[in-house]
């Protein structure tokens, strides 16, 4: 197991897990979110190739209702 941070909270996940698997486990539709990893945007097309590492910091965001 490794520990990563998702949206500010610690999460334990399996070693060598890629981003597609993580989003599946979190039950998040990859087409509806965007992911930032250690302050770098992760292009949607590369999710399969992104292997998560210990201490990675992820931000997973989506569109919500908002004006200003």
């Amino acid at each position: 197991m490794i520990e990563i941070t998702i949206n500010g909270d610690p999460h334990k996940i399996g070693k060598g897990q890629n981003l597609v698997k993580l989003l599946q486990d979190l039950k998040l539709d990859p087409t509806k979110v965007a992911v930032e990893r250690n302050l770098e945007i992760v292009p949607k097309t590369t999710y399969q190739n992104v292997k998560l590492l210990d201490n990675d910091r992820l931000e997973i965001v989506h569109f919500i209702g908002g004006g200003k």
Partner: peptide, 15 residues
């Protein structure tokens, strides 16, 4: 629209 963190604890919330 605004951009905010998803609620990873409750992913079934309406979007």
């Amino acid at each position: 629209v605004a951009i905010r963190r998803v609620n990873v604890m409750d992913p079934n919330q309406p979007m």
